[in-house]
């Protein structure tokens, strides 16, 4: 257990030293919040009701999809994995540690948004904070699981960025955080439902847990775990 906790704390430090994660998990989401939060609440004052949720969905999606895969590519598409394996460190450790560290960073960024949005833009605090944070915890985990597939499946940094952006753009544009889902064409609504961001936004804006809102997360997460397992075995060969 001591080795695992040391690994988590070390990965946390590595992520702080890496400018990429700092930018994708903190600077860009918070900058987006500062600018778009001002625009949204000026153009549509009712945006204050869901500002915390929409900005959090954007930040988490960005941090997970753009921030995590490069760390995984660094480990699994280089000689690092051979060094780990040769020296008795299990191959899955890199995946687990980077996910835990990214999870903590994204949660901290979400808390900053939760505190800052009401102060800066008079955003409405979710009616049930406990339910909100549990929804957030589920949403971060599922977003990271999708990002893990990209990081394990793609073998170089340039392609990783391309795949991450291909998933990131429709995730945020069709999730309902920019425009209400019901205003989107039917086809776009359907495409939007393929990504966790739309379900995350729905889950965090609802006042109660509904099984039909949690089910997509369960399906996506299970599928992602299976995929990650297959990809790790392929890397191990």
């Amino acid at each position: 257990m001591g080795a695992f906790l040391y690994g988590v704390s070390l990965q946390w430090k590595l992520d702080i030293r890496s400018k990429t994660l700092l930018i994708t998990c903190y600077i860009v989401p918070l900058l987006f919040f500062a600018i778009m939060g001002g625009i949204f609440t000026s153009v549509m004052p009712e945006a204050r009701d869901t500002l915390i949720q929409s900005m959090t969905v954007f930040g988490v999606t960005m941090g997970a999809l753009i921030g995590l895969p490069p760390s995984l590519v660094e480990i699994y598409s280089s000689d690092i994995k051979k060094v780990y394996k040769a020296n008795g460190v299990p191959l899955y450790l890199g995946l687990v540690l980077t996910n835990i560290s990214a999870y903590i960073h994204l949660f901290i960024m979400s808390i900053i948004l939760y505190i800052a949005a009401p102060l800066v833009f008079h955003a409405k605090i979710p009616q049930n904070p406990g339910k909100y944070f549990i929804s957030l915890a589920v949403f971060i985990a599922v977003s990271l699981s999708i990002a893990s597939i990209i990081g394990l499946a793609v073998k170089d940094q340039a392609k990783t960025s391309m795949f991450s952006i291909i998933i990131f753009i429709p995730s945020t544009m069709l999730s309902g955080i920019m425009f209400p889902m019901e205003f989107l064409p039917k086809a776009f609504q359907t495409i939007g439902k393929l990504f966790p961001a739309s379900w995350g936004y729905k889950l965090m804006t609802e006042n109660a847990f509904k099984f039909e809102s949690l089910l997509p997360f369960l399906l996506i997460f299970t599928l992602a775990i299976v995929m990650c397992n297959i990809l790790l075995r392929r890397i191990d060969k």
């Binding site: 590595l14 660094e74 280089s78 000689d79």
Partner: peptide, 8 residues
């Protein structure tokens, strides 16, 4: 041929 994370 061996490597470690850049910032480790």
């Amino acid at each position: 041929s061996a490597s470690l994370p850049k910032y480790m």
